[in-house]
């Protein structure tokens, strides 16, 4: 479903992403781990077509992003670290707007159902977003992804700053979607979450994909050790 071939992004002499090769199947949840500046967000931005690649290709469902961005955009949904919404509009109105932008027509009830699936309480639907907590915004973000019926979900640090309960709810929804065949590419710092939620885990450092692991095959302790070693080792080399 998602494929990167030698995908590279350079800003002048600095290479933010270095020849990334990656393939994610339909329904698969792939977690990208890495410290700040490792290239996780760059990868997502390249798949979304927000920034042009320096070289290499990114494909979504066989369509190259840089060739037909419009077509690939139709297939994706994106939830950033902080879901920013229009503060003067209510959650429902935001959802209505973004679902409309994605070309879908829903009734208010249908939209409400999406919100419920995303875990937002009905009493909050019509309050202005400016009064929402981070978790509530995140839920609207999920609802926006849901209404779009996206084939691919891009998540950028989606659970940072969420309380454990909210974080757990979030994981459940992603798993649900995965069962329905939605592929997910998630960038995160959270090793435990990556281990529990992801099918595969990629560890990135300084723009390179250093190692790929299958989460069932590695314990949380091992994952932590591998991660720290990878990051430290390189720092010594540098």
């Amino acid at each position: 479903m998602l494929k990167a071939v030698n995908l590279t992004k350079a800003y002048g002499s600095h290479t933010a992403l270095d020849h990334l090769n990656l393939e994610i199947q339909a329904g698969e949840i792939y977690c990208l781990l890495g410290s700040n500046g490792a290239g996780k967000s760059t990868t997502i931005n390249l798949f979304l077509g927000f920034i042009p690649a320096t070289s290499g290709q990114a494909f979504i469902d066989g369509v190259e992003v840089s060739v037909n961005n419009q077509a690939t955009r139709d297939m994706v949904a994106y939830i950033p670290e902080i879901v920013n919404l229009y503060p003067t509009l209510s959650g429902m109105e935001n959802l209505e707007f973004f679902s409309g932008l994605s070309g879908f027509q829903y009734t208010k009830q249908e939209l409400g159902r999406f919100m419920e699936i995303a875990g937002l309480q009905a009493s909050a639907f019509h309050k202005r977003v400016s009064s929402y907590s981070k978790g509530m915004r995140q839920k609207v973000g999920i609802a926006i992804a849901l209404v779009k019926k996206a084939k691919v979900l891009f998540l950028d640090e989606p659970t940072s700053g969420l309380d454990p309960h909210a974080s757990n709810e979030f994981s459940q929804i992603i798993t649900q979607l995965s069962l329905q065949g939605v592929s997910t590419l998630m960038a995160t710092h959270d090793l435990l979450m990556a281990k529990n939620l992801g099918h595969r885990i990629g560890i990135m450092h300084q723009g390179r994909l250093k190692q790929e692991l299958i989460s069932n095959e590695v314990s949380h302790v091992d994952l932590t050790r591998i991660y720290i070693d990878l990051v430290k080792e390189k720092e010594v080399n540098v």
């Binding site: 979304l48 994106y78 950033p80 879901v83 920013n84 919404l85 229009y86 973004f98 994605s102 926006i144």
Partner: peptide, 14 residues
């Protein structure tokens, strides 16, 4: 400033 630009740009709208 709201940070909504990414959401908008990742939508279907041109």
């Amino acid at each position: 400033e709201n940070g909504t630009i990414k959401m908008i740009l990742s939508s279907k709208a041109t």
